[in-house]
Design a binder for these strands. Structure first.
Lengths: 266, 266
DNA sequence: ACCTGAACACCGTTCAAGT
DNA sequence: ACCTGAACACCGTTCAAGT
């Protein structure tokens, strides 16, 4: 009576693993935010007791870390540096677009998981150079290096891009969530309108600039705006490092395609 | 027997206010991080009961918000836009240095209060355009406007600067805290050495760039590095917006003082 | 209006006991 | 090695009662 494969209909739960736990934690976080993730709720979802979870996870912080890692790992899959291995592309993709791709991957992950920014901040302060940082850092520094930024500035350039990407994505996700909270049918435009209106009521003497900027909050496509910030920083690279890849025009001043000129070694 | 001013030696506590509560909360957070701030601990410090605190504060989130506002408000004091009102300076300060000043104010605040980044992230997602955002936004957008960035790009430019500043400062504060945790006498240099070593053990196939960058983590002054990132973004402004103030050289390529040329309206 | 402090609900964590 | 689930300590929040 060896029942190996055929009792799968009856098994309550395949054995717990850190990964399955992280997966369930992400689902709870997505459904109800950080306060949705509790050991009772997680135990029930995995039909087990809290003690079982503690066998695979040392701590609630560790649990949150595992969830964060899972999401970041899915957004920035580990892949070797050079070849996409399927279609041989001689000139694979313009550098600027590759940067955009990495940035958008993080942008989308954060929009899909609005609890992520706070967790990234928490994990950062707990373990500033842990696996989460390594993944994100790898994804972005690879682009920086490909852009021919000189070696002594890799860290600075990566930091500038990385923090802009994460911060702007966090702000965007917060906007989305806030608009949704105002009412299921509140458009982004009318959300921004209400923000602008609220800021108009700030003291004009101490908040002159914030009020001025708030006026033009709504009229933009969010992704476009996000990418414009990336291009702004890339323009800084090009202006600061002569060897860096051709000057990248900002999204707000779209020009004709640049020449395929790309110097190789400094 | 009117005892107004002379019974100050005997009074246990001046009446509670939101501000005094926030102050005490900041002290607890500074002393022991977020888990140091509990209602029992706060009540004891203010020699009162939890109910009294709930009269002034709606919630623990509200309490954390008040603490965050207090720290940001102290770091970026509200002041009218133009004149320092004491010494009349015809050409008050080079723009670039004014940006540095705002950036360093936030940098120092975050280093002094390592719990701040996580709280900023939490408050952001709770109320993305609340008073904390307004303060920071005002401080930075004022600089952006003074840099002659065109109006349609104020938001993008402010975002780029703001998120770099907050993110890089958060990373720095986390480094400081981690180095301290490793041992009271661990220098920053040897902390970075241990990080670089750990990253060298990452899989060379999936983390080639992170490993390459990690090598040069330690050899820099942190403030200098931080400001170099600012300059990188400012260079992006100058390159992207012809009307923007003179090109600002990066801290890593310090050149002779720029020409005082500054065009006025686009 | 503002404070007191006991009481309640709930959650993170542990641990002796099981398989 | 991995899981069970009751038990414990602790914290956020409430509320009837005070001034």
């Amino acid at each position: 009576m060896t029942s190996r494969t055929d009792k799968k209909a009856q098994r309550r739960a395949d054995p717990l693993t850190r990964e399955r736990i992280a997966e369930a934690a992400v689902e709870l976080l997505d459904a109800a935010g950080e306060r949705g993730l509790t050991f009772p709720a997680l135990s029930e979802r995995l039909s087990t007791g809290p003690g079982a979870i503690y066998w695979h996870v040392s701590d609630k912080n560790d649990l949150l870390g595992a969830a964060t890692e899972a999401v970041i790992g899915a957004a920035l899959p580990a892949r070797p540096a050079p070849s996409p291995s399927s279609q041989p592309q001689p000139q694979p993709q313009p550098q600027r677009e590759q940067v955009h791709a990495v940035a958008l991957a993080l942008y989308d992950a954060i929009e899909a998981h609005p609890w992520l920014p706070a967790q990234l901040a928490a994990q950062l302060s707990r373990n500033p150079w842990g696996p989460v940082t390594a993944r994100i850092f790898e994804g972005i520094s690879r682009q920086v290096i490909a852009l021919n930024v000189p070696a002594h500035s890799w860290f600075t350039a990566t930091s500038a891009l990385m923090h802009y990407i994460l911060g702007a994505a966090a702000q965007n996700a917060a906007n989305t969530a806030s608009a949704r909270d105002l009412g299921p049918d509140v458009s982004r435009a009318s959300f921004f309108e209400s923000v602008a209106q609220a800021w108009q009521e700030l003291d004009p003497h101490t908040y002159p600039s914030a009020r001025a900027v708030a006026g033009q909050l709504g009229d933009h496509d969010d992704r476009e705006q996000f990418l414009a910030g990336i291009d702004l920083i890339l323009a800084g690279f090009a202006a600061t490092y002569p060897a860096a890849t051709e000057r990248t025009p900002s999204a707000t001043e779209r020009t004709a395609p640049r020449p395929p000129h790309r110097p190789d070694s400094p």
